[in-house]
């Protein structure tokens, strides 16, 4: 293991307590809502926020007693924080200079790194003349220039517009794959996390609520926050064979299960009817429309009733059903579209 950490940061109204391990070459994403403690965790790893308790070891060496400048880390900040008075090249050369390289050596190393991120032509440019995507790459090169054992990225793509983001995301993925140390990145964007990370750690209120490979987390969300991120309706209930009792409602599922269980299904699996459908399919309940909003090419209908749910329907279906907020409708989901797993 490259990184082993138990981070405890206690503040008046907030406590962060999380244990994590990251293998060499592994990319771990800390995912969570605003205020969950992701950035605090990252700052604690960097030594910018003091630990109340816990420990951090890197390659078997204890580092939590060291000042930030003595830790073998590299950090990419959300808004990059490139030094405005230095050129791109000197920004990247800053770290090697601090580590004792001569000016020439540091600049040579920096030039190599800038070339690797495809910015050889921008070496002399001041940060204010760089585009968002270029600044992000300079920030990455600057962090890598100190040859860190632990690379920390705070919302590395959040400051980019949608188009640039797509491009930079795949480049970043490539650079992270090539990096042999441990990487911890913080994001609130599920897509960034899925694309960039080998493993997700989901944090809510300062504690880990779920972790695992991105696909597993996406398939089996364990909190409303994760379910919302990956776009699933999620319920917790009591399973009894192929039925899960969620509140007053009994949902039929495809997997046999017993005890506390989660049931998840995508909003597109919900069918809506103005009147009670014939043939009474199972998993049918009466719901009230709380709101209707656009969602990509579709329409997302917010339902209240025995369970709250999102239903995605086409604009054509919306027009045909003539749905309005406040209406009572019938909702149903096929058992085969649901996914049940132990809680």
């Amino acid at each position: 293991m490259t990184l082993r950490a138990h981070l405890v940061v206690v503040r008046p109204a907030f406590t962060l307590d999380l244990a994590m391990e990251v293998a060499p070459g592994e990319v771990v994403a800390l995912l969570g809502p605003n205020g969950a403690g992701k950035t605090t965790a990252l700052r604690a790893l960097a030594g910018l926020t003091p630990l109340t308790d816990g420990h951090i070891t890197l390659d078997g060496t204890t580092v939590h007693g060291l000042a930030t400048e003595q830790r073998p880390i590299g950090m990419v900040f959300q808004d990059y924080l490139l030094f405005p008075h230095l050129s791109a090249l000197d920004n990247v050369a800053f770290g090697p200079r601090c580590q004792g390289s001569s000016k020439t050596e540091a600049r040579r190393a920096a030039a190599t790194l800038l070339e690797r991120v495809g910015l050889a032509g921008q070496a002399a440019a001041k940060p204010r003349h760089l585009s968002g995507g270029q600044a992000q790459r300079v920030a990455l090169a600057r962090a890598l220039a100190v040859r860190p054992r632990l690379l920390l990225l705070d919302e590395p793509l959040a400051a980019l517009d949608a188009h640039t983001r797509l491009e930079v995301r795949s480049q970043l993925r490539r650079h992270l794959t090539a990096f042999d140390g441990a990487t911890v990145l913080v994001t609130h964007d599920p897509l960034d996390a899925m694309v960039l990370a080998d493993r997700l750690i989901v944090i809510e209120n300062g504690a880990i609520v779920q972790q695992g490979p991105p696909a597993a987390v996406a398939r089996r969300p364990r909190t409303d926050y994760v379910a919302h991120l990956v776009g699933l309706n999620l319920y917790r209930g009591q399973a009894d064979d192929r039925r899960v009792k969620v509140g007053e409602l009994l949902l039929s599922t495809s997997e046999p299960l017993r005890g506390p269980a989660f049931v998840a299904f995508p909003p597109a699996a919900l069918a809506l009817y103005r009147t009670r459908p014939d043939g009474s399919p199972r998993n049918l309940w009466q719901a009230r429309i709380e709101g209707i909003e656009r969602h990509g090419d579709n329409v997302r209908v917010h339902l209240d009733g025995p369970i709250t749910a999102f239903a995605d329907i086409t604009p054509a279906a919306l027009a045909e059903l003539d749905l309005m907020p406040g209406q009572e409708v019938w909702a149903s989901v096929k058992a085969t579209e649901t996914h049940a797993y132990p809680a």
């Binding site: 910018l48 400048e69 924080l81 030094f83 800053f94 770290g95 601090c98 962090a143 100190v146």
Partner: peptide, 19 residues
């Protein structure tokens, strides 16, 4: 935060101040 960024790059407080 620029000073924090410099610290993550290994700069001592004196170097941070100077550079």
């Amino acid at each position: 935060r620029f000073e924090e960024a410099a610290a993550t790059l290994g700069a001592s407080r004196w170097t941070v101040f100077r550079r």
